[in-house]
C-alpha cells in the first residue's frame, strides 16, 4: 500500500563493471555448440528457417514409421518375421542414407556459411577461442544432430519390434547384438554426411552453392567411378567401387551388421568410408587454418 504523499526516486546506476565469474574457453565452446544446434534446427528463428531441417528429419524418420506400422500389423497376424527384422535394423540406412545426405548437404552449411558471408567469424576469432575451437564446436553441433536423426528411428524400430513379440525380454536377449551394430553403423553414416556437408560449406559463402557442391560430389564420384568400375572389369573394376561414396557407406553398413558383402571385402568398404570422412575433415581443417591466418 502506498501512503499519500509518498515520493519515489529513480536512481540511474550508470554503467556497472562486471565482477562475476568468467568461464573462459570452455564456456565459449559450449555456447558455440548450442548456438550451432539452434541454428541447424532453426530454433528461435522464423518458420522459413525450420522448413528444411525439420522436413528432412521427417523424411529420414519416414521409413521407420512405415516399418513400425508394418511391424504392428504383422504382429496382429502372428509373426513379424525375419524379413521385417532385416528390413528394420540391418537395412535401415539403405533407406535413410539419402535423406540424411540431403539433410547434411542443405542444413550443415547454415553453421558455417553465414558466419563467413556476414563476417561474424571476425568477432569469434578475437574472443577466447581458437579457430579450431570454433570449427570443432560447429562440427560437433551438427554431428550430434545427425547422430540423433540416425539413431532415433533405429531405437524406435528396435523398441517396436521387441514390443510386437509375445516375449519382449526374450527378443531383447536374442537381438541385443543389433544395438552396438546400429550404433556403429549410425556413427559411420552421420560422420560421413556431417564431414561432407561441412567440407562443402568451407568452399563457399553461399548455402545453396554448398548444397550443390556436396550433392554434386556424391553424384559425380558415383557416376564417374560407377562407369569406370563397370567398364574396367577385374580387380581394378571391383576396387573402383570403393570410390563411390554411397556404395562404400551402404556396404560398410552391411559389413557392420554381418551381412554378406560381395565384390570387395567388407572392411575395405568401411576403410573407404573412413578415408572419405577423414579426407573431408582434413579439407575443412585446412580451409579454416587458412582463414584464421
Amino acid at each position: 500500500m502506498t501512503s499519500r504523499g509518498a515520493t519515489g526516486e529513480v536512481f540511474d546506476l550508470g554503467y556497472q563493471r562486471y565482477a562475476g565469474p568468467r568461464e573462459g574457453r570452455s564456456r565459449a565452446r559450449r555456447a558455440l555448440f548450442w548456438d550451432g544446434v539452434r541454428t541447424a534446427l532453426g530454433l528461435g528463428r522464423g518458420a522459413s528457417q525450420k522448413v528444411l531441417p525439420w522436413g528432412f528429419i521427417a523424411v529420414a524418420m519416414g521409413p521407420a514409421v512405415v516399418l513400425i506400422v508394418v511391424a504392428a500389423l504383422a504382429s496382429q497376424i502372428g509373426n513379424t518375421g525375419d524379413v521385417l527384422e532385416d528390413l528394420a535394423n540391418r537395412s535401415y540406412y539403405q533407406f535413410a542414407f539419402t535423406p540424411l545426405l540431403l539433410f547434411a548437404s542443405t542444413v550443415a552449411p547454415a553453421l558455417l556459411c553465414p558466419d563467413r558471408r556476414e563476417r561474424v567469424i571476425a568477432l569469434y576469432l578475437v574472443r577466447p577461442l581458437s579457430s579450431m575451437d570454433y570449427l570443432t564446436a560447429r562440427i560437433l553441433a551438427f554431428f550430434a544432430i545427425s547422430l540423433a536423426v540416425a539413431y532415433l528411428p533405429q531405437v524406435l524400430i528396435f523398441a517396436s519390434l521387441s514390443l510386437s513379440t509375445d516375449e519382449p525380454l526374450r527378443y531383447l536377449r536374442e537381438q541385443w547384438l543389433e544395438v552396438p551394430r546400429f550404433l556403429a553403423a549410425g556413427f559411420v553414416v552421420a560422420a560421413f554426411t556431417t564431414s561432407l556437408g561441412m567440407a562443402a560449406a568451407s568452399l563457399t559463402e553461399r548455402r545453396p552453392v554448398a548444397a550443390v557442391i556436396a550433392i554434386g560430389f556424391v553424384i559425380g564420384t558415383s557416376t564417374l567411378f560407377g562407369i569406370a568400375s563397370s567398364t574396367s572389369g577385374g580387380d581394378i573394376g571391383r576396387y573402383l567401387e570403393l570410390l563411390q561414396p554411397p556404395v562404400a557407406v551402404i556396404r560398410a553398413n552391411d559389413w557392420i551388421f554381418g551381412q554378406p558383402v560381395e565384390r570387395v571385402p567388407g572392411p575395405a568398404y568401411f576403410g573407404a568410408t573412413t578415408a572419405f570422412t577423414v579426407a573431408l575433415l582434413a579439407l575443412l581443417w585446412t580451409r579454416y587454418r587458412r582463414l584464421a591466418a
Partner: peptide, 27 residues
C-alpha cells in the same frame, strides 16, 4: 570492434549480444 560489417542480419541484437557475452566466457 572491426571496421567492416560483422552482424548477422537475421538475429536480434539482444540474442546476438547474449551469445557474444557467452563466447567471451560469461555464464
Amino acid at each position: 570492434m572491426p571496421e567492416h560489417d560483422c552482424l548477422p542480419s537475421s538475429v536480434t541484437a539482444a540474442e546476438f549480444l547474449t551469445h557474444m557475452a557467452q563466447i567471451s566466457g560469461l555464464p
